[in-house]
Amino acid sequence: MMGKFFGFLQQKSSILKWLFFIFLAGTVCFDFFVPRHGHGHFFGDSIIGFWGFFGLIGCLVMIIFCKGIAHSFLMKDVDYYWEDEDEGIVR
């Protein structure tokens, strides 16, 4: 039953997508009404929508940075450390 429900959600993914975008707009709108006194640690605290910007840019930069590093030198074939009997079972 639950499996069917998730299947239904996947079929309706375009509606979910729009709901998600509305939610994003909602978070920024909500930021207009948030009292900001007492949060003087950092300049970003006083900019409306700053953390949304931070999240998006942080996420994109992180993906590009990590995938870039991985592809340039971290990534090796799965059998890089391979030795003869590695796939065996003990006992």
Partner: peptide, 21 residues
Amino acid sequence: MYHLSETLQIIGFTGLGFYLM
């Protein structure tokens, strides 16, 4: 209110980043 707003934005827009990438 402030902490809620901060968290919802970070989470929401990270989700957007995932969706794009």
